[in-house]
Write a protein that binds this DNA or RNA. Structure first.
Lengths: 195, 195
DNA sequence: CGCCCGTGTTCGTCAAGTCGAACGAGGAGA
DNA sequence: TCTCCTCGTTCGACTTGACGAACACGGGCG
């Protein structure tokens, strides 16, 4: 309920995040300890253009932003978003569980994907039985799975791998994939990441 | 200009997704059964501009694309999607462990934040003793913590909370914060998310 | 048929983004 | 100190995106 103010579906009331983009670019750049000139060189842009982008003045083109995203090595969308978050705690069992009907699974959504973000955190628990089949999600979706208990077989169809506690797997979520618990009380952390 | 393909991460599609954007816009528009003129009106753009965008000609500005995203009611990122990723598995114990000197902790980096990503996945294990003190990270950093074993006290200074297996906490990482294991064999999944 | 909408495209003009160069500021080294 | 290099900003010229109007096409209707 106290979900973040996700009401604004697309948040954007009106303002193009010129300032946010500016900050994001500069942040990513400084994080990598690149100089403005160096980043401009790698991105194939002029220093003046980059300077204006980072100062929030102007309204860069897609090509320009794209070049920056590539040069910075960040997904494009990363440069056009607005963060800020308080402290939230979800007590064990207090996360609205979603039970699967086709298989003995529960998947608790911890950190939703409030329009704008692109990562959902799930705590998945399952019992031996039928595999849970997940359809292909949106293109670019990546799933990270960290087994915390029991034993799982998971992955894209035809590429499933067996995972034990502590094992970590990362695979595309934009193809059909399955999760199968092999022993009772199996649990895993699932991070779904969209691009 | 070609960036070293150091990791099996998303390799950089050098070309700006002009075509992809064009298709995405048209797809979203037709899906809503909007005419080109109508969408242009709602977005506050001219038909000609929208026509060029949808034809893949030209190189729209951020403001333009943003207006379209808002008018279409989709997150901005949806108009600029792309990639695909292979399967990666990190076996338990095969993740380079980083031992802390100040406290009995090990933090295994699962999915790094190589120049590109914006989220690091850590599996943190700890023994009772001194708290691990983390400096403030870059602004916008958010930490997600999911306790898998034992008992932890973690959070920003002054706002620490006690966490038990299954508990999940989410707090800003751009302020000083600590992790303290209360019982032997404590473990947690840590997702560090940058912005 | 002639007319009036509607669709999406193309054309000329103006504003704005991008570029290259020149600029002042700060550091390292001789 | 003087020099040389790099930092990031600002300025003028060129390029290009965005706009509005006119355009061609197609359907409904009197």
């Amino acid at each position: 309920m106290e979900r973040t103010h996700d009401a604004p579906t697309v948040d954007a009331p009106e303002g193009p995040p010129l300032r946010a983009i500016a900050d994001a670019v500069r942040r990513e750049r400084t994080r990598r300890e690149l100089s403005l000139g160096e980043l401009a060189r790698r991105a194939g842009l002029s220093k003046s253009t980059l300077s204006q982008v980072e100062s929030g003045a102007g309204n860069p083109s897609v090509e320009t932003l794209w070049a920056l995203a590539v040069a910075l090595g960040v997904p494009f969308a990363r440069l056009v978003e607005t963060p800020a978050q308080p402290v939230r705690v979800v007590r064990s069992g207090h996360a609205a569980p979603l039970t699967s009907e086709s298989a003995p699974f529960t998947s608790a959504l911890l950190s939703a994907c409030p329009p704008g973000a692109r990562r959902d955190l799930h705590l998945v628990t399952g019992e031996p039985g039928a595999a849970r089949e997940a359809h292909a999600h949106n293109p670019g979706t990546v799933e990270h799975m960290l087994v915390t208990a029991g034993c799982w077989v998971a992955g894209p169809e035809g590429e499933q791998v067996e995972l034990h506690p502590g094992d970590y797997a990362c695979f595309p979520g934009d193809r059909p994939h399955t999760y199968t618990a092999l022993v009772p009380g199996s649990a895993a952390m699932l991070v779904m990441e969209y691009s």
